[in-house]
Design a protein around this nucleic acid. Structure first.
Length: 553
RNA sequence: GCGCCUGUAGCUCAGUCGGAUAGAGCAACGGACUUCUAAUCCGUAGGUCAGAGGUUCGAAUCCUCUCAGGCGUGCCA
């Protein structure tokens, strides 16, 4: 809708410029917004205000010239007005909205989808938690945001692939193995010092117990190296298994699980270092190998290979992103915890170093989540192994509430997750407010069906919805495609959550003031189509968030 | 010290890459159920947009400084 009207506006301005009626105007700056008040119309544009100075023309005069040209589209605009200092306010004709309502019902689950992304290949990498412990609350937010973003990008016409990067090599894996071995020996009555940098969570004991159940005491006589390796591999497999299950429960799907170890196996890490070296972007100093990231805006150069000969985390990560590039993605989106923000400039620099196009890489940072229960903060400390797992959250408040709550804030703002509120089955819980709207509509449709009436936009005369509360509801529903596209392009999935609240609120208001199944046969048929469209929009938008749309509550 | 994020109603937060009288929800107060799910709706009240300068027709939004909170600043991952 918005796009179509923007097109008309550009066309009108283009015509005026060509005919010499107005001086050249920068049409790139043409944009529509939804004005703060209904009396200002459905859309408004400030193009006359923005261009007045350059055009050397008073804004009001410029505005009225453009307005009168636009007004010729009397099939689209009911009224075009100039207001205030030079806004052009557009009142869209009811027929246009009714046509959009018809589209909702015809397109069904496809309504809201568009081709804005023009099939560009996008990869969204998220969660990517190390396989050293279960997913915790913070990972949950990343999972909800990443999965929702991927669904939104898909709906907006991008070719999306989701990926989980598994850091299955490195020191942390050895620490994991040592931790499990320590607990395993404990179970066999052998005490030893707790390993340095070991993992202290109870899950380590559980894994040790599983290992004992499977292998009895067979590790006790093994050489240290071999026992450590067995523990490490067993623990990693067990933990990854748990992570996959948690994500499945959370309705989060990955197209691909990418093991860091595969980069080494394929020789990609050395290959990448070779590429960087041959481009003259590396140098040796203090016995270490450095990458000249300062050449690409980083504040200091970074080490690739340490003095002791081992690689930093950075080195394989560059190889990983080089692999992503080679797979042909136009847009590479990494979703990281905000504590990694210091890593962004260096990764951006690395992307430039391996020849990535400008702006093809984007790191989306997810700020911290804190939990509140009974009005008090829930204490968490990953280091001490005291953290609330994603699984516990799902078990406590349910998948739907958890996903919605994680999406209720902008990603770059810290989130306070109120567990009590998320559990409440009442009006102040936004998830239930929305799901209740959906269930209410389903109930109306069911009652209608019992009377032998089905929503049908072929039989109904939808023009009777051209005013008042009916039209207001149509307008809210019709915003859906624009919201999806905006959320996708801005990488702001929280907008979907806020839009859903708008739709639910618009429906509840409508419901309380109007009867759908009434004696007026014409109106009844049309309103049945209207509420069915509302049901469809709510269901489609909930689906973008991976949340169920229940038919009864 | 330097860098990033945040600061908007009592609370939790929106605010569409500068627009019109700064908006929701909760909490408070007052109303609406012989009616399709009252798990809802309507109304009232609530503000120095952290503070101070600046940019311009116009600033919560952009720039500078100050204050407050969080995070980062490894040859860790």
């Amino acid at each position: 809708m918005k796009e179509a009207i923007e097109h008309l506006l550009r066309e009108a301005i283009g015509d005026l410029v060509r005919s010499g009626a107005i001086p050249p105007v920068d049409t790139d700056r043409v944009s529509l917004e939804v004005p703060p008040e209904k009396t200002f119309g459905d859309f408004s544009t400030n193009i006359a205000l923005v261009s007045a100075k350059k055009a050397k023309m008073p804004p009001q005069k410029l505005a009225s010239t453009i307005a009168s040209t636009l007004a010729r589209h009397d099939d689209v605009f009911e009224r075009v007005e100039v207001a205030g200092p030079g806004f052009i306010n557009l009142h869209v004709a009811p027929g246009v909205w009714i046509k959009e309502l018809r589209r909702i019902v015809e397109l069904k689950a496809s309504y809201g989808r568009s081709n804005a992304g023009r099939g560009r290949k996008v990869q969204v990498e998220f969660v990517s938690a190390n396989p050293t412990g279960p997913l915790h609350v913070g990972h949950g937010r990343g999972a909800a945001v990443g999965d929702t973003l991927a669904r939104i990008l898909d709906a907006a016409g991008f070719d999306v692939q989701t990926e989980y990067y598994v850091n299955d090599v490195g020191n942390q894996m050895n620490n994991l193995g040592a931790s499990v071995l320590h607990r395993y020996r404990e179970l066999h009555g052998v005490e030893s010092a707790f390993p340095e940098n070991g993992y202290k969570g109870d899950y380590i004991r559980e894994i040790a117990a599983e290992l004992k159940a499977e292998r009895a005491d067979s590790l006790m006589g093994m050489p240290e190296d071999e026992a450590l390796r067995v523990c490490r591999d067993f623990a990693a497999a067990s933990i990854m298994n748990g992570i996959r299950k948690d994500l499945e429960l959370f309705n989060v799907r990955f197209d691909r699980w990418f093991n860091e170890s595969s980069l080494y196996e394929a020789g990609k890490v050395e290959e990448t270092l070779g590429t960087l070296r041959s481009r003259g972007l590396t140098y040796e100093e203090d016995g270490a190998l450095w990458l000249k990231t300062t050449a690409f805006g980083d504040e200091k150069d970074r080490v690739l290979r340490k003095k002791d000969g081992s690689l930093t985390y950075f080195a394989p990560d560059i190889a990983y992103h080089k692999d992503k590039l080679a797979r042909g993605f136009d847009w590479i989106i990494d979703i990281w915890g905000a504590d990694h923000h210091g890593y962004v400039p260096r990764m951006k620099a690395a992307m430039s170093a391996i020849g990535a196009p400008e702006d093809c890489f984007h790191a989306l940072l997810i700020q911290l989540v804190s939990l509140v229960r009974g009005g008090a903060a829930v204490q968490m400390s990953t280091r001490a192994g005291e953290f609330v797992t994603l699984r516990e959250i799902i078990d406590e408040v349910g998948k739907d509430a958890a996903r919605f709550f994680f999406m209720m804030r902008r990603s770059d703002a810290q989130l306070v997750f109120d567990l009590d509120l998320a559990k409440k089955r009442s009006e102040d819980n936004p998830v239930f407010y929305i799901q209740y709207a959906h269930a209410r509509i389903c109930s109306i449709l069911k009652n209608a069906a019992e009377l032998g009436i089905e929503p049908s936009c072929k039989e109904a005369d939808l023009d009777v919805l051209s005013s008042g509360d009916d039209l207001e509801l149509v307008k809210v529903l019709a915003a859906c495609p624009d919201v999806v596209v905006d959320a996708a392009l801005c990488l702001e999935p929280h907008r979907i959550a806020f839009y859903l609240l708008d739709v639910a609120s618009a429906f509840h208001r409508f419901y309380n003031r109007n009867r759908v199944i009434s004696d007026d046969v014409t109106l009844r048929a049309a309103r049945l189509v209207l509420v069915d469209a509302a049901r469809q929009v709510i269901a489609n938008t909930l689906a973008l968030m991976g949340i169920d749309a229940p038919e009864t509550m």
